[in-house]
Nucleic acid binder design. Sequence first.
DNA 1: TTAGGGTTAG
Length: 710
Amino acid sequence: MKGPELRYSTAERHPACLSTTPLQVQQPKPYPLSPTVNNDRYPILSLINQCNSTKQLKQVHAQMLHTGLFFYSFTAGKLITASALSPFSSLDYARQVFDQIPQPNLFTWNTLILFLQLLHHCEHFPDKFTFPFVIKAASELKAFWVGNAFHGMAIKGSLSSDVYILNSLVHFYGSCGDLDLAYAVFVKTLQKDVVSWNSMITDFAQGGCPGEALELFRGMEKENVKPNDVTMVGVLSNCTKKLDLEFGRWVYMYMKCGSFEDAKRLFDKMQDKDIFSWTTMLDGCAKLGEYDEARHVFDAMPRKDIAALNALISAFEQNGKPKEALAVFRELQLSKDAKPDEFTLVCALSASAKLGAMDLGRWIDVYIKKHGIKLNCHHTTSLIDMYAKCGDLEKALEVYYSVERKDVFVWSATIAGLAMHGHGRATLDLFSKMLEAKVKPNAVTFTNVLCACSHTGLVNEGQRLFYQMEPVYGVVPGEKHYACMVDMLGRSGLLQEAVKFIEKMPILPTASIWGALLGACRLHGNIELAGQACSRLLELDPRNHGAYVLLLNIYARTGKWDRVSGLRKNMRDFGLKKEPGCNSIEVNGIVHEFLVGDNSHKLSKEIYSKLDEITAKLKSVGYVPNKSYLLQLVEEEDMKEQALNLHSEKLAIAYGLISMGPSQPIRVVKNLRVYGDCHPVAKLKSGLYDREIILRDLYGFHHFRGGNCS
DNA sequence: TTAGGGTTAG
């Protein structure tokens, strides 16, 4: 909200404002233009410089409004500087210019306006205490020309060796994105203090030059400047924010056991570290995968607030550890010190979605309603995602219909929900509605839509959309989209088209693209092409277990036993092991996990006797295990698993049958693909026990009801 | 007087 009475409130209270006739004071000459900013790129700047009357300036002003240049802070800033500091200056006009700038930061603008008034009305030249303030204001506004002019004025006022002013300028040029100028000022600072180093390090870190930041970080050590918490927090949080993990890990190692007096100890020794520093440290450790260290930091925190808890929960949640995330959430639920806030709820919902923990998800939904928390788009998206991933598409759609505000995240989550439940047409319809609502789709939206087309055989529609992505919607197709297209063509049997598509792609094929082709070959039994795709896939991803197994199968089937033994040797050499199949089921808000042949559950005995009962029942209705699945599996482990009827999903379903009420649907989440005879068996079970069974695997949902699969 | 800083979704 902006209003004139607010905007000028500070300025109008200034005694100088009582004067009606502006004083004419000698103005400093404009500082020469920075050599790194090209005047040709902004011809308007030359025009501004050439003006020698307010009338001319007004003409330029009008032109800037017309072309939109007025709405860039540095061109607008230049206009303000020109109108306020030029020989024909008029502060009233500068104010008018200021008045037209949309949503200015009131405080910083007021600082500048006050400064300009000071220049107009005060007979003393601003001193070394004035400049850091106004340069800071210019930094916040990223008003290059304004700050640049201050730089010139400071030089003119013989203040250019003051370390405070120089440090401010380093920060200023950095925040305007001019690292060269920032560095030039930094180098010229003769008596650098820790703030000088920190400013420049931060400029580099935020300006996308982590290498230079690190170099400087080392430079501090050489110069015997002791880094402080600002150094550490700045460097570490910048690299984790950008997920520049290599850099982050480097810094982390440096901190942990590095040569420079051990920065970790520095952190431990810091006297005045506040909760921000602690949380940054915690977040940094967690994001770098040092969970034990993160937990350690968390436990050592003298005071923990909700943000610290959130940092821990979200770090677990986003690094494939949803179970650990929910464990922390449970601690929070039990503790009286802190209450979950909107961040916590979003993280916990997301973790519930990943685990298929619908009881907890529903609890959060109720919590939100009970506490009258107004849904924002983050909540809405997470709720839709949670219900969809827990298998309750109706509930997900209910949330979607219940909210008015829908951003691209909300739309994309709903589209993804429809897609994962196999509703291709509905996905496309929703996508059209999204366009009608004038919400611009992004890369993720397209991945979801293309995925739906691929899974439901809507090849023409998918292709049409894919080729519209860039020209119509301005979304450049990425690896995932190309992989979707390969999957779409391959799945529908157009294997040669898929190969041609890969050859013509403007990007180099990645492992996931060969993986998509491989999947299609498996589906359509094209052994020759599968062999080629496998080889390419293994070149790029030599540790891909699935590709090895498939290639082994191909060689075994075609009798190429020498190759089989060669591959087996490779696998042993690489120490490759299959990712263990794991199924989870949530009962009364607790997620139980089962591995193959698992007997660690406390009700293991009951589960296995239930399994026997199920097997007997299945036999009695004439079920015969399909041995053909065995032929597809070369690995002994898989054979054993299959032969012993101990697939982990079977254990999970058996547990569901003994522990849940007869009307409750059994929801099982599998970390891999549902395969073998588990699908037909689950179908039979849903009929025999009159239970709804919902199986989620890596690729989507299988709903079983009354002996049928949707 | 100057530098920095924590947690959220598809």
